[in-house]
Computed example of a mutant assay.
Amino acid sequence: MSVAIHQSAIVSPGAHVAEGASIGPFCTVGPNVTIEAGVELISHVSVDGHTRIGAGARIFPYASIGLAPQDLKYKNEPTRCEIGPRTLVREGATIHRGSVGGHGVTTLGADCMIMAMAHVAHDCTLADRVILANNVMLGGHVEIGDTVFVGGGTAVHQFVRIGRQAVIGGMSGVEADVIPYGSAMGNRARLIGLNLIGLKRRGFSRPEIHALRAMFRLLFREPGIFADRLAQALERYPGDAQVAEVLAFITAASRRGLCKAGRDTAAEDEDEAAA
């Protein structure tokens, strides 16, 4: 297999481009970039910095990857950007490299989809199968677990954590951490329940879903002091892996605190009863 580089593309001599990669018209690739096998830069793509694009990724026109972070403290240090295999980056999306004030690297996992005009800021960490819909804006240092969906137009504050299998409704403003398997939406975002549709689609059993539902009601619907309810949950579910994951997320160190529960809805109650 050969490397296909369009005659109008500019690929710096120091760049490493693997066999089977394709670099389309008017793309620019910096000297410290590694492009792995089967990557396709469709056209008008800019990749710079110490950036690695994983095998089979596809980058659509006018996307910008690995350029300097929007951080006034950044002084052109050799920080990095890592894009996982088979990830799709759609038109006009921007993914900036890390900063020395953070991890020094911005990371996207495998099989992610970053839709048009979305922004992933410096030092963000996205696990596998994360989907950011159009115009999502991630501030710096955001951490997102695997198989999370973030709806279009949502803004996520810097240092926020979003646990795996969570879903964020479109046009939300997320200022605080969202638990794994949670469903949050609104400006400012509040927990409205669990991501029950996602749990069913991904094969979670009825007992697993029922345990998560009971845990959610105890923590976020029952009266009393939250710390006391959390202590009850820790005692009540010692052997449940999913519940333990949520509780570990809640008790871990956080810069932003926990996203609070919002209103009850009839639809939520119906969905939970069906689960």
Rank of each mutant, 00 (worst) to 15 (best):
M1T: 15
M1H: 15
V3F: 00
I5A: 02
I10N: 11
E19H: 11
S22F: 07
I23Q: 02
C27Y: 00
T28F: 13
G30M: 09
G30E: 07
N32F: 13
I35D: 03
E36K: 10
V47Q: 04
G56D: 10
A57V: 06
R58Q: 14
I59A: 05
S64Y: 04
P69D: 06
L72N: 10
L72Y: 12
K75S: 14
I83T: 05
P85L: 06
T87G: 06
L88M: 14
V89Y: 00
E91D: 15
H103W: 14
M117I: 04
H122F: 10
A127W: 04
N134M: 08
N134G: 13
I144L: 06
G145N: 06
F149P: 03
T154I: 13
A155T: 14
G163I: 06
R164P: 09
A166C: 08
A166M: 05
M171Q: 15
G173S: 10
V174Q: 02
A176D: 11
I179A: 01
Y181D: 02
A184E: 04
G193E: 07
N195V: 06
L199F: 02
R201M: 06
R213V: 14
M215N: 00
L218C: 07
G224Y: 11
I225Y: 08
I225H: 13
Q232A: 14
A233V: 01
A233Y: 03
P238N: 07
A241W: 01
E245Q: 15
A252F: 05
K260T: 13
K260L: 13
T265G: 14
A266N: 11
A267F: 11
D271I: 12
E272S: 12
E272H: 07
A273C: 07
A275E: 13
